[in-house]
Simulated assay, not measured.
Amino acid sequence: MNPRWQKSSYCSEGASCVHISNGPATIHLTESADPTRAILNATPQGFRALLHTLKLDKAPSRV
């Protein structure tokens, strides 16, 4: 596997960064500060669910 990685737009220079790459039917995620260079693989549906959950968590509370 030789994915083409894209750095998160939320990453500042020199900071630990999340990188993403897509392959046929798979999304790959990695974090630059991880010494093991682990790669998380997800389906597009799973990745969409992750993003949806993260956005819900950041949404302001409604009263």
Score class of each variant (00 low, 15 high):
M1N: 09
M1V: 15
M1C: 11
P3T: 03
R4F: 15
W5R: 00
Q6A: 11
K7C: 00
K7L: 00
K7H: 01
S8E: 00
S9C: 07
C11E: 02
S12R: 12
A15H: 09
A15S: 13
S16V: 08
C17S: 03
C17T: 00
V18I: 11
H19V: 06
I20Q: 09
G23W: 08
A25M: 09
A25C: 10
T26L: 07
I27Q: 02
H28I: 04
H28A: 13
H28L: 15
T30C: 11
S32V: 01
S32R: 00
A33I: 01
D34W: 01
P35A: 05
P35K: 07
T36K: 11
R37D: 10
R37Q: 15
A38Y: 01
A38P: 04
A38T: 09
L40Q: 02
A42F: 08
A42S: 10
A42T: 07
A42E: 10
T43R: 06
P44W: 01
Q45E: 12
A49D: 14
L50V: 06
H52P: 05
T53A: 12
T53F: 10
L54I: 02
L56G: 09
D57G: 10
D57F: 12
D57S: 15
A59Q: 08
A59K: 10
P60R: 10
S61Y: 07
S61A: 14
S61H: 11
S61P: 08
V63G: 14
V63S: 13
V63K: 09
